[in-house]
Each structure stands twice: as structure tokens, then as C-alpha cells.
Design a protein around this nucleic acid. Sequence first.
DNA 1: CGATGACTGTAGCAGTCGCTACACTGTGCG
DNA 2: CGCACAGTGTAGCGACTGCTACAGTCATCG
Lengths: 188, 188
Amino acid sequence: MVQELGRRDRLTDAATDYVLEHGLVGLSLRPLAAELGTSDRMLLYHFDSKDDLVAAVLRTSNDRSVLDLRALPPSADVRSAVLDLWAAVTTPRLARCQRMYVEAAALGLFGQEPYASVVREANRVWVAAVADHLVASGTPRDRAPRAAALLDAALTGFQLDLPLDAGDPVLEQAVRDLADAVTAIAGG
Amino acid sequence: MVQELGRRDRLTDAATDYVLEHGLVGLSLRPLAAELGTSDRMLLYHFDSKDDLVAAVLRTSNDRSVLDLRALPPSADVRSAVLDLWAAVTTPRLARCQRMYVEAAALGLFGQEPYASVVREANRVWVAAVADHLVASGTPRDRAPRAAALLDAALTGFQLDLPLDAGDPVLEQAVRDLADAVTAIAGG
DNA sequence: CGATGACTGTAGCAGTCGCTACACTGTGCG
DNA sequence: CGCACAGTGTAGCGACTGCTACAGTCATCG
């Protein structure tokens, strides 16, 4: 039993990759287990229930997101901070995480657990990281929460429409408008 | 067979109410049919498949949203247009529709049909209605699409976080900031 | 009248779901 | 050694899914 302590952790990691690809909604233990080279029996052994596993996956994905976000170097000014954030968030790796976050948040909209509670915490941590990046890029600390609130909401909204009109020039213009808006909040 | 032409339509309406309440994700024909005083057998007779029914429900909900939105009287200026829009969209009746839209959009994120295609169309119509309201409230016509794009994204994002931090003063401040931002786009 | 077609109830199919009972392996510890 | 126990495979339970086959009931129309 010494084996490896990280058994469950490695399963969580692999499961997260799978769910990021396939989505939360149709998620079923048997196909997931098959892709992981194990069985549903084992997943329910290491996690206590499907909800438990889902919660772990959600947290792992969010940890990755926040890690990526905090790895960003400070931007030259607030305006480029927004543009850099948008660029980061549309990176395939981060976009997947964001997509799953949105999915989880949508499920949480109807109060369904474990989504609702995990999403609440995830959002708190994520917005804090966004605010920190804004501060590191020249936003006064007391303005950062307001700016981050608008910025986060708009970014989420953009991402929701992304597959609808990818590459739409109106969308790209809206991102620039958002950058100006955040700059105004930071500077006013 | 003369009976009433609106058979399917009345079912669609009632089904829409049910889905707005219970969400799309867990949706199952039998409980829905029970609440509607019929059977799954009948739902599949009037609609050809569950997907067909879901698409009808999605369209009905969106029609209601857009109808409500277009019923709004023009606002005094762009800034109050945004605030009025936010007020309208947080109305219980409209909030439910928006919530389901977000859920459908999230499902569409993974390319799942019929969500993806219906949501695309719904978004197009909705954003157009938002743009029209901005124009009616003093936004120059050529600025309206840009303004509506940012406004819609931010509103959607706010709604996604609404159950997380309802009544949060930061959120309310962010709405005012959004109003200023849209005003800047419209006026610049 | 008989026939046609819209509509509905019953009953069930084939499949999937999360989850569990049970037997088994291997390893470490006394 | 013998015991305990983490980990694993097999097999299956009961519930639920979308959907369908089939047999009917009615009003309408030739």
C-alpha cells in the first residue's frame, strides 16, 4: 500500500484532461474509466462518488487556470493587460478550462450540486487572480476589484459567444472597447 | 382533427414553462409529460424527437425574451438604456429565459446539437434587439453593433455570476461601470 | 355505411446510468 | 507463518432513458 500516494491525484489529472475534452454534461464513469485504463469500479473506489470525482476535476481545472494566469508577466499598462488576458484566455489550453468553467457555472445556475459550491469558490479565486494581474499592470489597488468584476464578466460573455462567431471583427473590436473601459475604471 | 391547430403550440408553451423552471440538463420526457398532463408517448407524437422538442422550447423562450426586450420604451440616454436593460434582464420572468439561454449556450460550447445551432440564431436575434434599444435611446446607428456586443457579453457574464454573489455591491458597481463604458462607445 | 386519418393508452424494448456485493490478489506487519 | 488490509476484477442490481409496436377511440368524409 506504500505504492504511490499520488494514485488518486494521477487519476484526477487524467480525468480532468478527459472532461476538458468531452464536457461535464454527458460525463459517464464507464467511458471515462476506459480512457483512463481502469474501470468505473476503481473510480468509485478512489473517489467516493461521481460527484466527488467531478468536484475534484473542477478544482484541478481551476487550479490550472489560475496557475497559468498568475504565470503571466505584468503588462505594460492596463489596456494591454486586458488584451494580454484575452490572448491568454483564448489559448487552447486555457480556453478549454474556461469552457468547462462556464459549463459548470451554467449547471450551478439551477442549484445543482456539486457544481454550485465549487464554482463559487473557483470564481472567487479566479477573479482575485485577474485583479492581481491588473494591479501588477498599473491599476490602483482600490480600483482593481471593480475593474476585475467587469473584465471577468465580459471575458466570460465573450467566451460563451466565441464558438458562435469566432473571428468576428465585431467581437475583436468589443475586446478593444473592453480594454478602454477597464482603463477608464482604473484611471478614473 | 379540426380540433385546434394549436395543440403542439400549447404543449410547447407549457413545456417551455417547465424547462425554464427545471433546466435543460436533467430534462426527461416522462416527468415533463406528467406535469403537462400527458405522456411521453404524446410528446414524441407531436414532436418527432426529444431534440425537436428542446429546439422548440429554446425558440419559444428566446421569442419571449426578445418580445419583452422590444416592449421596453426607449431610455432617456445610453447610460440609462444600459441600466434599464439590466433591470429588465434581472426581472424574474426574463432572468429565467436568460438563465436557460446560458445553459443552452454552455451545452452548445461542446458542439452538442440541437443547442449549438439554435443558440447561434437566438443570439443573433437577441443582440439585434439590444442594438435597436441602444439606437432608440440615442446611440448612433453605426456605433450600436460594437456597443451591443460588449453590452451583451457583459450582461451574460454578470448573469452567470448572479447566483454566486447576488446583491454584491461590487457587481452593482460593475453594472454602472458597464453603463459608462457603453456610453463611451456610443459617444466617442 | 365503411373507411380514413388524427390522436391516445399500454406495454415494453434495448440500452445506459451510478453504484454495490463478493471474491480475489498482493503486500506489509505481528 | 497468519492476519489485515489496500487495491482490483467480475458481474449484476434497480432505476431510468428515448423511443416504438400495437391496439384501440374518435370525428370526419366519400
